[in-house]
Amino acid sequence: MITAEQKPIKEIRETIAPYRKILVLGCGSCVAECAAGGEKETAMLASALRMAARMNKEDVLIEDKTIDRQCVRDFIVQLEGVIEAYDAVLSLGCGAGVQAVAEIFSDTTIIPALNTEFLGQTKDQGLWTENCVGCGDCMLYYFGGVCPLARCSKQLMNGPCGGSREGRCEVDPEIPCAWQLIIDRLGRIGGLERLGKVYPAKDWSKKQGRGPRKIVREDQQR
């Protein structure tokens, strides 16, 4: 999933300051799973903003609504007839959601309330970790299901570097050394020989070489 965290309330208040009628818009997908922008967080943020406005004697209307996905047209169009009543939308979608809503409601100001972080997993309650960079050419088979591009601090494809110590990364002992994880995993599943070869340089054109990427699937088009 895509993970995100809420921006500081001070920054949010600064960006919404010019507007009088604000719709705080949540998203029920990834950002709900990471407790940043789901229905609950959206209602809480709206309430906090209303309270701050009241304390500062600001005359504003702040309401909230959550849709299932801010990044999918079919869900965004549910806002037709709703969004027009507001001066601005404060979106708790990820960066993709904010842009998708802005694209469809091209005359409306859409303000991000979240900082979008990474593609990751919910590892535990209240703990999300990064494990994919969306490189466009998955090599997880070779690395035993641990991605060195996402999880090694130096993106080494032929690691570990000289800073791996007792399974920890030199950058921060809180970070497990991805290469130790790779070696351990391949050892358990009998794939250590995969590490004998020199993996060639990554073809980054599959990620960023031709500008923003798109996927076209004619079989899926109506």
Binding site: K154, Q155, L156, M157, N158, V198, P200, A201, K202
Partner: peptide, 10 residues
Amino acid sequence: LGVFDLDSMQ
């Protein structure tokens, strides 16, 4: 930004 386009081996 850490570039790390290649690793030392490559």
